[in-house]
Amino acid sequence: MSEVRKHIVFHGRVQGVGFRYTAKYLAQSLGLTGWVANEWDGTVSMEIQGREALINKLLVGLNHGQFITIEWMDTKEIPLKEEHGFKVKG
């Protein structure tokens, strides 16, 4: 299966609710790479790379967070990068 890389901006109650660390845990458990960061406008940005089915599993897992409320996501596919691991930024 081929890999994809996506840039996703999450809107809703996504800051101050453990979103970034939940994303990191899920990404690591699924073998995905990339990063996640809080933005000044209250959104959270993420670049995530791996098999599409595994990225979708991560998104489902984030939606099941107790305090996380994702209202909508802006998603675009971007070029693959050579990287290792998943980081929490800012």
Rank of each mutant, 00 (worst) to 15 (best):
G50F: 09
S45G: 13
G34I: 10
V44E: 02
G34K: 14
G34T: 15
H64V: 03
N56R: 15
Y25C: 09
F67H: 11
L54M: 13
W35I: 04
Y25G: 11
G42T: 09
L59M: 14
L32W: 06
Y25T: 15
L62Y: 02
S29H: 10
Q49W: 00
L62V: 10
Q66C: 06
A53T: 04
V60G: 03
G61D: 00
I55E: 00
K57D: 03
W40M: 12
V36C: 05
E39F: 01
A53K: 05
V36R: 08
N63R: 15
L32M: 09
G31P: 10
Q28N: 14
S45I: 12
N63Y: 04
G65E: 02
S29G: 08
G65S: 12
M46G: 06
G65V: 09
L26R: 02
Q49A: 04
N38Y: 04
N56E: 15
V44Q: 04
A37F: 04
A53M: 01
V36N: 11
N63G: 14
L58Q: 04
N56W: 02
Q66R: 01
V60A: 06
T33Y: 03
T33W: 00
T43P: 11
G42A: 10
L26A: 11
W35Q: 07
V44W: 04
G50W: 04
A27H: 07
G65W: 03
L32Y: 09
M46D: 07
V60D: 01
L54C: 07
V60R: 05
G34P: 05
E39I: 00
A53E: 01
V36H: 13
I55V: 14
N38W: 02
V60T: 15
G50E: 02
H64W: 00
G31E: 06
M46A: 11
S29Y: 05
G61N: 05
L32G: 08
G50Q: 02
H64M: 02
I55H: 05
K57F: 02
K57R: 14
L54W: 03
L32C: 10
N38P: 02
G50K: 03
Q28S: 09
G61A: 08
Y25F: 12
A53V: 07
G65T: 03
Y25I: 04
W40S: 14
R51W: 01
A37C: 15
E52Y: 06
A37V: 14
L30C: 10
Q28H: 10
E52S: 12
V60K: 05
E47P: 06
N56G: 09
L54A: 15
A53C: 05
G31N: 09
E52R: 11
Q28F: 06
E52L: 11
L58H: 09
L62Q: 00
L58S: 12
N56H: 13
I48R: 03
R51F: 07
Y25L: 12
G42M: 08
E47I: 03
L59C: 06
G31A: 12
L58K: 05
E39P: 01
V36Y: 05
Y25D: 08
E52K: 13
T43I: 13
G31K: 08
Q49H: 07
W35G: 13
T33D: 03
A53H: 10
L54K: 15
L26C: 09
A27F: 06
L59D: 01
L54G: 04
Q28E: 15
G42Y: 11
S45V: 13
